[in-house]
């Protein structure tokens, strides 16, 4: 990229209570300029209530998964998937008396 400029990534919170999501990126010569410019690039229609502006160099990436492979069978205990059989275990005690089944 241009020698005097760096890429800054912008993340914005759309509403209070929401997490920040990626809004886009821009070129600027320093963080002060990046923050000021980001406001008009990404927020002029009041799309966000707050933004984070981060130099891209500060962002580390790692490849973490391949959706095509499907869930890892050895790690099912990390999700509800791993506890499908629990329903059967309630039968010994007369079934799963959930409030919403009354």
């Amino acid at each position: 990229m241009s020698q005097e400029m760096a890429v800054y990534e912008v993340f914005g919170r759309e509403r209070k209570g929401e997490p920040h999501k990626h809004a886009g990126s821009l070129l600027a010569c320093d963080a002060d300029m990046a923050v000021l410019l980001a406001q008009e690039l990404f927020c002029r229609r009041k799309e966000y209530v707050q933004i984070w502006v981060v130099p891209r160099d500060a962002v580390r990436q790692a490849p973490v998964g391949d959706a095509a492979l499907g869930p890892e069978p050895r790690r099912l205990y990390r999700s509800g998937e791993g506890y499908r059989e629990t329903v059967d275990k309630w039968k010994r005690f007369g079934g799963d008396r959930r409030a919403d089944r009354a």
Partner: peptide, 8 residues
């Protein structure tokens, strides 16, 4: 813009 500034 390419000049580094201490004021920035």
């Amino acid at each position: 813009m390419a000049t580094p500034t201490s004021a920035a």
